[in-house]
C-alpha cells in the first residue's frame, strides 16, 4: 500500500511539475506552437496514468492551459519593500512597485531586474527616513523573505540581506512569506493569538497558531474564482478584476441562488463557478438577472463563506478574539 501511495505521489508530483512548466511557458510568451505541443504532450502523458484519476488530471491540465492562455487578470503588480522596525513600531517603510504592462501578468526576470535597480535606493531611503545614524550599532538584525515565491525576485532580497548582514556583522533571519504577512498583521492590530483569514493572489487560507506551529485549518483560492468569474462576464482587467466586480456589485440588488459549499473548515468555489458559467449568459440575455446582480450575488455568497469558515476556525480553536482579516497586503 505504501509503495502504491508513493508511486501516486511521484506521478502527481511530476504532473504538477510539468504543469508548472506549461504555466510559466505561457507567462514567458513561448511561441504558440510550442505551448500547444507541450499541452498535447501533457494530455498524452496524463492518458497513460494508471494510478491517478485521469479525468481529474485532464481537467487540471486544461484549467492550467486556459489560465495560462489568458494570464491577464493574474497579479499584475509586485512590490519590493524595505522596512525598519523597533519594538513593534515601524520606523520607515519605503516601497517600490513594479507594474506589469496592462493586460499581462508580470514576468519573473523583469520583476527581478526592477528590484535590482531599486533596492539600493530603497535601503538608503529606509535608513534615512528612520533617522538611524549608525546602522551597525543601532540595528539588531536583518530579516528577509525567504519564500515561497518567484525565485528570481526573491534572490534579490536574499542577496541584499546577506550582504548587509555580512557587512554590518548582524544576524540574518529568513522569514516565511505567509508568516511574515501574518506577523505583520498581528503586530499592527496588537491581536494576541488570532485566527487569520489570509487572502493573497494565489492563496486563501484560514490559519491559526496551535501546538507551536502555524496551522492551516482551511483553504481555497478565492482570487482564481473572482478572475474566472470576471472572464465569464467579460469584465475589464483594469485595474484588476476583483475591483471591477466590486464596482458592479454596488449597483446590484437581486440575490441569485448560488451553491454554498462549506465542508468543515474548507470551502469550494468550483460549484459556484460552473453554476454561473453555465447559466450567466442566458440569464443576462433574458433579462432575468443583470450582470450587476450576478456580481452582487457572487460577492455576498463568496464572502459569507469566507467569514463562516473563519468563524468555524475560531469556534474550533476556542479563540474568540477579534480577527484581523489580512486584506491582501500584496495587491
Amino acid at each position: 500500500m505504501v509503495e502504491v501511495i508513493a508511486k501516486i505521489k511521484i506521478f502527481q508530483w511530476e504532473l504538477i511539475h510539468n504543469m508548472r512548466w506549461l504555466y510559466q511557458g505561457f507567462r514567458m510568451s513561448v511561441p504558440k506552437s510550442a505551448a500547444l505541443q507541450l499541452y498535447r504532450g501533457l494530455v498524452r502523458y496524463a492518458r497513460q496514468l494508471k494510478l491517478t484519476d485521469q479525468d481529474w488530471a485532464l481537467r487540471r491540465i486544461r484549467e492550467e492551459f486556459e489560465a495560462g492562455r489568458d494570464a491577464r487578470g493574474k497579479r499584475a503588480r509586485e512590490s519590493y519593500e524595505v522596512g525598519i522596525m523597533r519594538d513593534g513600531v515601524v520606523l520607515s517603510n519605503p516601497r517600490a512597485t513594479f507594474h506589469a504592462p496592462p493586460g499581462e501578468g508580470f514576468r519573473p526576470s523583469e520583476t527581478a531586474q526592477h528590484h535590482r535597480q531599486q533596492v539600493v535606493k530603497l535601503v538608503l531611503r529606509a535608513i534615512k527616513e528612520s533617522g538611524i545614524k549608525e546602522p551597525e550599532k543601532e540595528l539588531d538584525g536583518i530579516a528577509f523573505t525567504k519564500g515561497p515565491g518567484m525565485g528570481a525576485p526573491l534572490q534579490v532580497g536574499a542577496i541584499v540581506a546577506r550582504t548587509l548582514s555580512l557587512q554590518w556583522n548582524l544576524p540574518l533571519l529568513g522569514v516565511n512569506h505567509c508568516v511574515g504577512h501574518i506577523e505583520m498583521g498581528r503586530l499592527i492590530t496588537g491581536a494576541d493569538n488570532p485566527v487569520v483569514l489570509y487572502v493573497s493572489g494565489g492563496n486563501t487560507q484560514v490559519i491559526s497558531y496551535s501546538m507551536h506551529k502555524y496551522r492551516i485549518f482551511g483553504e481555497t483560492i478565492v482570487g482564481n474564482c473572482l478572475d474566472r468569474f470576471a472572464r465569464v462576464l467579460k469584465l475589464s482587467n483594469d485595474p484588476f478584476p476583483g475591483y471591477n466586480i466590486e464596482q458592479m456589485a454596488k449597483k446590484g440588488s437581486k440575490l441569485v441562488d448560488l451553491p454554498y459549499t462549506v465542508k468543515g473548515m474548507d470551502i469550494s468555489f468550483s460549484g459556484i463557478l460552473s453554476f454561473i458559467e453555465k447559466r450567466a449568459n442566458e440569464w443576462v440575455e433574458k433579462g432575468e438577472f443583470t450582470r450587476e446582480d450576478l456580481c452582487f450575488s457572487l460577492q455576498e455568497t463568496v464572502f459569507s463563506m469566507l467569514v463562516e469558515i473563519t468563524e468555524r476556525a475560531m469556534a474550533h480553536t476556542g479563540n474568540f478574539v477579534e480577527t484581523p482579516a489580512n486584506g491582501c497586503s500584496d495587491e
Binding site: I16, R20, A71, P108, M150, G202, N203, E219
Partner: peptide
C-alpha cells in the same frame, strides 16, 4: 482520500 490529500494548496506560490 489519497487524491484529496494531494490537492491541498497550490504548491508553487507564483501569481
Amino acid at each position: 482520500l489519497e487524491e484529496v490529500r494531494m490537492r491541498g494548496r497550490k504548491r508553487d506560490m507564483i501569481g
